[in-house]
Simulated scan of single mutants.
Amino acid sequence: MISAAIHGFILAFGLILPLGVQNVFIFNQGAMQARWIYVLPVVLTASICDTLLISLAVFGVSAVVLGVAWIKVTLLLGGILFLIYMGYSTWKSKPKAEETTDQSFTPRKQIAFAASVSLLNPHAIMDTIGVIGTSSLSYSGATKITFMVVCILVSWLWFFGLSIVGRLIGKLDSSGRFILLLNKLSALIMWGTAIYLMFSL
């Protein structure tokens, strides 16, 4: 059981660490919001979505999804369109003054974007369903549950930590120039990911 926990921790941390669309969006929102509590909708939504994906993966959906070609193509097409739109929105967004909330990312929009980043992101789906789901096949019973819970905990802790770091950097950047540059970089990463997915089709 301990080995399954260690395996789950290393695997989940390795998958979530790279600078992807989901991480960039959470960090970006942490830096842009006037107070850290305003980024909680993003953090909770992303964490819940990852919990859902990991749970579905461990309980056997991975074999079904990866075995049906049209599902993979649909996920890729949806992900491409979403990334293009989100890249445009991020490119156009501008940091607000410290005392005001960023009106371009209301709690409802934060939740919608965070859910889209998690559930319409083919990389996130392939990581959870493809890698974590496949890795869980070697476990059963309580050991499999331990593996799954540790993977889920890593996601929650990572997203909370990422939003806090983003908030600290946002407070240090009183001019807003860093956040503006981060928005442009985020948009380029999203568009680059979309182009990569187009070629993968």
Rank of each mutant, 00 (worst) to 15 (best):
G20Y: 13
M32C: 08
R167H: 08
W91Y: 13
C49G: 02
G161T: 12
S118A: 14
V68I: 15
V39W: 01
Q29S: 07
I169S: 05
T146W: 10
P41M: 02
L137A: 15
H123Y: 08
Q103F: 13
A5H: 05
W91E: 03
G166V: 02
Y88Q: 03
W36M: 01
V61A: 11
G133P: 01
L137N: 13
G192P: 01
N23M: 10
D50F: 13
Y139S: 02
T134K: 15
T106G: 06
T101V: 11
I132C: 11
Y38I: 03
S104P: 06
G166A: 00
I129Y: 10
M1Y: 06
N28Q: 12
V24H: 05
V64F: 10
S175A: 09
I152A: 05
I54Q: 01
F25Q: 06
A112D: 10
L168R: 12
L185T: 09
S135A: 15
A4Q: 05
Q22T: 11
L75A: 07
H123N: 12
M148A: 12
L52Q: 05
M148E: 14
S135C: 11
F82W: 10
Y139E: 13
I6N: 07
I54S: 03
F159S: 04
A69Q: 15
A46C: 14
A112Y: 14
I6C: 12
I145E: 14
G141D: 08
G79Y: 04
T106W: 00
G30A: 01
E99A: 07
I37A: 08
G133N: 01
S135T: 05
G141Y: 09
F105H: 04
G78C: 02
M1V: 05
V21H: 09
A124P: 11
T143M: 12
F178R: 06
F147P: 08
S89L: 12
A115Y: 05
L77I: 13
G170E: 00
A31V: 02
F105C: 02
D102S: 07
L81D: 06
A34Y: 01
V154W: 07
I2K: 13
L162F: 10
T101E: 12
K171I: 02
W158S: 06
I16Q: 02
M190D: 07
S163H: 04
V117N: 14
L201Y: 03
T45K: 12
A124H: 14
V150D: 05
V68P: 04
L40C: 03
M86V: 09
G176K: 00
P18A: 04
F25L: 13
V61E: 14
C151L: 15
I26D: 04
I125W: 08
L172G: 15
L75H: 05
R108Y: 03
A194L: 02
S93Q: 02
W158Q: 09
A5M: 04
V64Y: 13
A187S: 05
V24R: 00
T193C: 07
V73D: 15
L182R: 08
L182E: 05
K184G: 08
K184A: 13
L181I: 10
Q33L: 04
Y88W: 01
R177L: 12
V65D: 14
P18C: 01
N23S: 07
S175F: 12
L40F: 06
M1K: 09
A63E: 15
K94A: 08
M148Q: 09
